[in-house]
Design a protein around this nucleic acid. Sequence first.
RNA 1: GCCCUCAUGGUCAAGCGGUUAAGACGUCGCCCUCUCACGGCGGAAUCUAGGGUUCGAUUCCCUAUGGGGGUACCA
Length: 482
Amino acid sequence: MTEKVRTRFAPSPTGFMHIGNLRTGLYAYLYAKKNGGTFILRIEDTDRERKVDGAVEMVYRTLSTAGIVYDEGPDKDGGYGPYIQTERMGLYKQYAEELVRRGGAYYCFCDKERLESLKDENGVHTYDKHCRNLSKEEVERRLAAGEPYVIRQKVPEGVVSEYEDMVFGKISVDSADIEDGVLLKSDGLPTYNFANVVDDHLMGITHVIRGTEYLSSTPKYNLIYDAFGWERPKYMHLPPIMKDATRKLSKRFGDANFEDFISKGYLPEAIVNYIALLGWCPKDNREKMTMQEMIEAFDTDGISKSSSIFDEQKMRWLNGEYLKAMTPEAFYKVAEPFIDKAIGDAPWDKRELAALMQTRVDVLSDIGEKLAFLNEFGEYDLNMYVHQKMKVDFSVAKQAVKVAIWALETFDDWTDEGIKECIRQAAESAGMKAGQVMFSMRVALTGAPVTPGGAIEMAKVLGKQESLRRLKYSLSLLEAAN
RNA sequence: GCCCUCAUGGUCAAGCGGUUAAGACGUCGCCCUCUCACGGCGGAAUCUAGGGUUCGAUUCCCUAUGGGGGUACCA
């Protein structure tokens, strides 16, 4: 009965896509899918000044790795194309002219200077409707004379334009507060205000989902739909994502862009999951959700009206949850490039390292520093051997390292259990606590106060030979200290 | 200036006239423990202000304050 939902995402290809833009696309996608509708990608590339090479490809890549798949777009014709705005340039003029005929717009011949003179003391200028009531004859005469012109919206007077926003509720604006804005520029091209309305109508968009920057200009757009006799779409405006309390995420500052997070080692699913939660809360308050689960749970009710601040810390946490939930094989696969980067050509067992890393990193790029002990072993501060609770001091440490060396040289079961057992036995026969030996051994093996694992695990990754080498070196340091 | 809009802990947020005001991140403490991490347990921390309406306001209305957006031949 109800018409099929069609939503669109209309990014302008001006560089990387930041989290805020992506979230708008995500919501449009979720809403369409939730309602069994169609999600459309339209590229709004009319701003030649800001256009960036390769940015269109970036949009494709971002959406694809984010798992947001469009049903119609530049490379997926659904019969409503073209889907790239610059390719639609020819069709706006006729619509503008039709609007003039329908009484919803008019020709304006005012030049820049005149417009400039209309500015008030705040530098804000409102058009004085100078050409609004030009006679038909005069318009035709000046058109025929080739005078430059624009086509302006003829905003009805004395009306209140209102609509029901899906998240903000009733929005109403007095027509006195709406300017007779330019629809078609003197170069014959449309302004965004006009192109957007024509495109959405021609593409059969039923639900316009976009940022709040359009919340208060939507009544103006609705007046255009009305003048054409077109059906108005439903609107869902989304509050912005902020960098802090007063600043929006900004593209030029390189804030929070998707691509960066991916290369830092965030999982696309985690990023998407996190941003879905920025401004939306499912009924059951779940946090970790797959795309499918989000589609099912998505509802307009849960969308918040206030802006939210992007919190990378929480995204890190969520990413960590995803990482921990992976199978060891899956984790190894995503971690491998980062491990490679950390260890270079060194012969360490990457699977063992991955196993150590899985519960210890929230973001893959943390792997580098966690693995630093492998390549950076040299002189270190001996004070790290002193441990109150373990009752370890220099002499105990020295003794412990000797025991460890003896144990590793004597026993030969090179498995976690085997190493542990031999240390335990060696400690016992030396009259020491196993913990004291292991603590000291761990330090002696790594020269680091904090390591991604205990003595056993460290010995295991380093291998018997390297372990002994390091233990002996550490012993020499300890002996030299006294 | 004018117009639209928002306001719960540090952050994300639940709440939709009566609640000890959920939960999560972060933070702090404890437990586990050879450091770290994981895991477990616990703590601290929030309704912007002032007026109404009401028996009763975080919740409804108004105003103020603060934030965001718009006010372009940008999008």
